[in-house]
Amino acid sequence: MSEKKTNRRDFLFTATYAVGAVGVGATVWPMIDQMNPDASVKALASTEVDVSSLTPGKTITVLWRGKPVFIRRRTEDEIADARSVKLDDLKDPEKDEDRAKNPEWLVMLGVCTHLGCVPLNDKGDYNGWFCPCHGSHYDTSGRIRKGPAPTNMEVPKYEFVNANTIKIG
């Protein structure tokens, strides 16, 4: 009898604790989730850029989701340069053909993959980009060649809406 009573009591207390814990969890979640991107931020996912004024060898930087995006119209030499590199020489092997579907246009996030600085244009040992913060060198395809950055600069989702307009995101 007394044993049964103990069991029942244990069950009651365990159940109370368990149900209480669920409630605490459910209450804490909204307080955490409120810091995630809100509906209005999520809605601003894409931006359209007019690139008609870009001549070969020039780069423009546009803002997308609060980050700089480099849009470069590459010269023939740069394309040849980028395409001739052997994959074995790369820290993060990736073909230029995969990074720039249309070889003339390179679109990528202008964010160094090391710690997030914005690399400088037309600088560095590989005539591409150079990050002044910690000395990462990128080639004409935005791939990491030398320095602490672990990966190539990221290519966002983008498409040509028409010959002169790129839609990023």
């Binding site: 009651l12 159940a15 109370t16 149900v19 209480g20 669920v22 409630g23 459910a26």
Partner: peptide
């Protein structure tokens, strides 16, 4: 939920 927990408590 609160009613269930209240009963348990």
């Amino acid at each position: 939920y609160l009613i269930i927990l209240t009963i348990l408590v």
